Simulated scan of single mutants.
Amino acid sequence: MLALLVPGGRGQLGQDLVAVAPADGLVHGPSSGELDLTDRGCVADAVASFASTARDGGLKPVVVNAAAYTAVDAAETDEERASLVNAVGPEFLALACAAENVPLVHVSTDYVFAGDGSRPYEPEDPTGPRSAYGRTKLDGERRVLRAWERSWVVRTAWVYGAGGPNFVKTIARLESERPELSVVDDQRGSPTWSADLAAGLVQLASRVVGDGPAARVLHATGGGETTWFGFARAVFEELGADPDRVKPCGTADFPRPAPRPAYSVLSGKAWEAAGLTPLRPWREALREAFAVGAVP
């Protein structure tokens, strides 16, 4: 039976991780205020205490790190803080896990790639982040993998869910406010429902308490691909609104401080090769998310 410690447990993904954790185990999802990853002593104490409690109860502890600095544009002028949360903190977490022999699953992002590809990125493909956020997340991956041999990195993309702000909630709000909406049609990726991602991460956690997958970097996103324009049209459809009210535009029409990857599709081949269940197709997941009231 599993015991899951989920730093970032009050965030969008963290809430779903706590919700889908096995009922016969133990789960603790502290917020960043309760567990500050940038405080090395605090991190070491938290992991040691959790591991001891879990093992005393006959459970197998695993840490799934859902904590991150995700303000992509703000990171351009706040890279030092983003680095503390996305790179230094995860390294402290990995070192604490190593000291207690606790496996670590660390969540990362498509932004570690340049975004100029034309086929789904494999985990071993060359990285080349173009934003401060991407640089700090890639640094975090490298620090985690270097610090502890029983660490696994899972990259994902275009995540939405019940908790926190996200694209689906934004589009749903704008549908009620505007007669028409322009959405970029030259950025391509795979929408990922946080509940599906959480289920996949828990499945991985159940594997890493043993030998775990040989591949230490994996990709997990919703199946298939679309553009933000296509994603927005799908949200309108689920709302019962006319999708033709969504109009395509280009990235240049909406300049942002941080560059966005034009191509963010991640290959799930390594995930499947590890014996893990592929996440469902993105359109099917979006339909289910609306059906169960997880969004907007």
Rank of each mutant, 00 (worst) to 15 (best):
L2G: 07
L4P: 08
V6P: 00
G8W: 12
G9W: 03
G9P: 00
L13N: 08
G14E: 01
L17R: 06
D24Q: 15
D24G: 12
G25S: 08
S31V: 03
E34C: 00
D36G: 05
L37W: 07
L37T: 06
R40Y: 04
G41S: 14
V43A: 08
F50D: 12
R55T: 11
R55P: 07
D56C: 08
K60D: 11
P61M: 07
A66Q: 11
A71H: 14
A71D: 15
V72Y: 09
V72M: 10
D73N: 13
A87N: 12
E91L: 11
F92W: 15
F92S: 13
H106A: 08
G115Y: 04
G115P: 03
D116G: 09
R119M: 03
D125W: 11
P126E: 15
G128W: 07
A132S: 13
Y133W: 13
R135H: 04
G140M: 08
R142A: 13
S151G: 02
W158K: 06
G163D: 01
G163W: 09
G163N: 04
P165C: 05
N166Q: 05
K169W: 01
L174R: 14
E177C: 02
S182V: 13
V183M: 10
D186H: 08
D186N: 12
S190A: 14
S194N: 00
D196R: 09
L201D: 00
Q203L: 02
A205G: 11
A205I: 09
D211A: 15
A214V: 14
V217G: 00
G223E: 10
T227P: 07
W228N: 12
F229M: 09
R233W: 02
F236W: 12
E238R: 15
D242P: 03
D244C: 07
R245L: 07
V246R: 07
P248F: 13
T251P: 00
A252Y: 11
F254W: 06
P257C: 13
P257G: 06
P259F: 10
Y263L: 09
S264G: 13
L266A: 00
A270D: 11
P278H: 08
A289M: 04
V292G: 00
